[in-house]
Each structure stands twice: as structure tokens, then as C-alpha cells.
Design a protein around this nucleic acid. Structure first.
Lengths: 156, 156
DNA sequence: CGTTTAGTTCAGAACAAAACAAACCAAATG
DNA sequence: CATTTGGTTTGTTTTGTTCTGAACTAAACG
């Protein structure tokens, strides 16, 4: 089993790629994923990652703007406690993202396919069938995601 | 319908993100996608994209190293004609990439889940079921990709 | 009010990525 | 064998990102 810091690093790299985050923001996000819902204070983010106040502030604000994290306060405690925004919805929003991606992918493939139909007829005839087949795969994929999404929605 | 240059730009942006390519390399890739299998010469890449010889050279070499493009020569013509490497396999390799992604995703989710099982029991109990459900989705997704992949493999 | 606490803001340092320009090389051509 | 053609290599410039550090704000506390 990886140690906590190791796992933060591994997960951080992954999140960096998945959500196109700067390194520090991704590490903080990873840290919060591994922390229970009491969350982390600004100060904890600062010391856990050895970064400057400015960097931590920027990273936390970015994650908030992206809807990834929120904070709460305790009465009689001025500090913000940051937590991931909707742990219940974590997988659900992954599925929603997936749905968007499929849509985008289909859109471009159709754009290119239409272009070929008009301007590259030979090519269109040679590969049109594969394109159809891939579009069909996208449809099936979409249905599968949609079905899982429905299950996750009931869950909430 | 978008014009050819517009489509190159749109597709270019998409490919940039999909394969993590530098802008110029992605535009050249897009250009080749819209060009029939006669391909494009170095000179054409150069003038189509208004870039310097050095940049085009670097971009083409990168795309070759990534296995995305190849070139052929005509007897009595010193120029290289660049084409996309395996148009027949285009969708197939997209599916193969998809398969790898699913594997990575599962790996991290399991890593995090194991961590929670040991170090974050309450949290594990609250969300473990969702995790299971998502892992199941990944399995189904994998099967679907695998099935499509088999169809595409026969095709070749 | 002065001070402490909890952050924000912003200029700029440090680094990384992408493209350029010019010199270079190697094969064909006259 | 000098020159053109088709690229490659190398050093530089441009551009963009990420983080820092220091000055600042705003709320609470005594």
C-alpha cells in the first residue's frame, strides 16, 4: 500500500491530467479526496504542501470556481474548512463529464465525415462504413453512461 | 459547413487536447486527416500553416515518433509525402486508447478505495457502495469497448 | 483603537513550451 | 564539382504558466 503522501502524489498526477489542473491545485484536491468531510483548513493546505499563502489561495479559489470544492465555517472559528464539493455526486459528475465528451467526439467525427462526403468522395466511400460503426459504438457508449447515470441519480 | 481551414482549426484544437500535442503538430495532423492518402509534402505543410522549416520538421518528427503519421516517396522524387499512418486503424486505436484509460481509472479508484478501507473507515462505509457501482460501470464499459474492438479488428 | 488572525492581490522570478532563424548537411542535378 | 533541393540541427526569442513574496484588506479580539 502506498503511504498517504505517495497516494496524494499519484492521485495528484492523475487529477492534473483529468481536470487540467496546475500541480499544486491537483495535490490539494487529492489531499481533500483522502480527507474525511471535516476537510482541511487553509493553514493545513499550506503546511501539507509547503507552498506559499498566495499559491494556496489561488489554487483554492480555482478549485472553488470549478465547483470542485466548497468550504464551511464553525461558529466561533474564523477559519474556512475546505471540503470536496459533492462527494455524493463524485461519480455522478464523472459520468456527466463522460457524456459531454462522447457528444463532442461525435460532433467532430460527423463534421469530418460530412466534409469528406462533399470534398473527398473516394475517401468517404472507403472508410464511411467504419465511421458508421464507430458512431454506433458512441451511441451504445452513451446509452451505457446514461443508464449508470440514472442509477446514480436515484442514489442522491 | 465550415471551410477547410476552419475545420482544420476546430479539429486541431480537438486533437491538441486528445493527444496532448503542441498546436502546430495538431494543425498538421488535422490537415492530414482531411487530405486523401496522397498526403502532403514538407513544403505543403510549411506553406499551409505559415510556420518555419524548423518548426515543421520538429512537428513532423514528433508525429512520426508517436506513430501517428508515416511518409512514402515516389521514384524520382526526393520529397517525402506524409500521410496518416493507419487510416484503416484510426478508430481501432481510439478504442485501444479508451481501453487503457478505463484501466488507469479503475486502478486509481481501487487505490483510493483501499486506502479508505484502511484509513477512513466511516467514509468507506458511506460511499463504498457507489464505488462498487462505478467499478461495475467501468467493467461494462470495458466490455463494450472490447466488443467494438473485436469488430474493428476483423475489419482490417 | 491597536493587534492578531485569516486570508487576498499583484508584481515579478523561475521555469517550461513552442516557434523561429540561420547555419548546416546530404543526396541529386546540371 | 558547384548548385539546387529537401530537409535537420542548434541556439535564440517569444510566449505562457506556476509559484513566490510582500504589501494589503477585512473581520474579530482584547
Amino acid at each position: 500500500m502506498p503511504s498517504r503522501p505517495e497516494l496524494i502524489e499519484t492521485l495528484g498526477v492523475h487529477l492534473e491530467a483529468e481536470y487540467d489542473l496546475p500541480p499544486l491545485a491537483a495535490r490539494i484536491y487529492a489531499d481533500l479526496v483522502l480527507t474525511d468531510d471535516t476537510g482541511l483548513t487553509f493553514e493545513a493546505c499550506l503546511s501539507n504542501h509547503g507552498a506559499s499563502k498566495g499559491s494556496v489561495s489561488t489554487a483554492l479559489n480555482l478549485l472553488q470556481k470549478m465547483g470542485i470544492i466548497t468550504y464551511y465555517t464553525k461558529p466561533g472559528d474564523r477559519r474556512r474548512h475546505f471540503t470536496i464539493a459533492a462527494r455524493k455526486a463524485f461519480f455522478r459528475s464523472k459520468l456527466e463529464e463522460q457524456l459531454k465528451k462522447i457528444g463532442k467526439d461525435r460532433a467532430i467525427i460527423q463534421l469530418v465525415n460530412n466534409f469528406n462526403k462533399q470534398c473527398n468522395k473516394a475517401h468517404y466511400e472507403r472508410y464511411g462504413e467504419r465511421t458508421e460503426s464507430y458512431l454506433e459504438f458512441l451511441d451504445q457508449s452513451e446509452s451505457l453512461v446514461q443508464a449508470s447515470l440514472d442509477r446514480f441519480r436515484k442514489w442522491n
